[in-house]
């Protein structure tokens, strides 16, 4: 089992958000959003584009300051939790400059920066952590490749490895299943389960409902606020989904039909 940075005072909540309100120059992006996640769970954050998913992430990472409400990560305020390397963000592939001259190894090593000295000189323990993380995502053979030479799925795994190397206890993943191959999807599913058993908490932002049902224990439906929250099987009702996605009929719930991308 991997070490994780867990500085929580009591083990009750990895993520604790209480009545968060965020507004951008008067436009309300999120109001009264509350969420409590214990250690060792996988939670889907589901909503349309513009429903406040990324705002919620930004608030959890301290990029936007809520005008009201309280956020604690492992019982700590957000800046402290960040300094303790508790939070890792795994970006969407689109957000990354793929022609940047760094190797896979160097990208994963970036997960260790927060634990290094000012000059970011890797120690033996950092190298071991990176090696181990790359092994877990099955990229060890590709470690010398430039990040741009990887496929979409491999790149996703590289950023997961960075989060592992960081030893974060809270993982925020942005559309983790978009544009990944079958092998990566299977590997990620296994990894998420392992993460859960290691006591990490994973919050997955997505509008892909089929994956939420497959992977997530819990689900949060949001549209400017938290509409429903709880066990996936209980929350995924046609009424709730209609509420989340406006007037659209959630016919994709009827079993075997594949998930429909609601944004297109």
């Amino acid at each position: 089992m991997d070490l994780i940075n867990d500085h929580s005072i009591d083990d009750f909540c990895r993520i604790y958000a209480e009545e968060i309100c965020v507004d951008y120059n008067g436009t309300v992006a999120l109001y009264d959003a509350s969420l409590q996640l214990k250690s060792g769970c996988i939670c889907g954050l589901v909503g349309m584009n513009g429903a406040g998913k990324s705002t919620f992430f930004k608030a959890l990472m301290g990029f936007v300051r809520p005008s009201r409400g309280k956020i604690r990560i492992n019982g700590l305020d957000v800046p402290t939790a960040q300094r303790e390397q508790a939070v890792a963000y795994v970006p969407q592939n689109e957000g990354i400059d793929c022609s940047f001259p760094v190797s896979v190894w160097e990208v994963v090593m970036m997960g260790r920066y927060g634990s290094m000295n000012l000059l970011r000189v890797p120690r033996e323990s950092d190298r071991k952590a990176v090696w181990h993380a790359l092994e877990r995502v099955e990229l060890i053979d590709l470690r010398k490749r430039p990040i741009g030479a990887l496929s979409g799925g491999q790149r996703k795994r590289a950023f997961l490895a960075r989060a592992i190397a960081q030893r974060a206890s809270v993982l925020l993943l942005d559309e983790p299943f978009s544009g990944v191959d079958v092998r990566t999807e299977k590997l990620m599913a296994d990894l998420f389960l392992q993460f859960k058993n290691e006591g990490r908490t994973i919050l997955i932002s997505t509008h892909d409902l089929s994956h939420v049902r497959d992977f997530c224990d819990l689900v949060v439906l949001i549209n400017k606020t938290v509409l429903a929250y709880g066990e996936t099987s209980e929350v995924f009702t046609p009424e709730n989904l209609t509420m989340t996605f406006g007037g659209m009929s959630p016919d994709f719930l009827s079993g075997s039909t594949p998930a429909i991308d609601l944004n297109t």
Binding site: Q82, R83, Q85, A88, Y89, V102, M110, G111, L119
Partner: peptide, 21 residues
Amino acid sequence: IFRRDLMLYCFDPTHARSIGI
């Protein structure tokens, strides 16, 4: 002194911020 941090800042500022840089 800031060689690595600046590289990270150019490559992935979101990650840089999320680890407290």
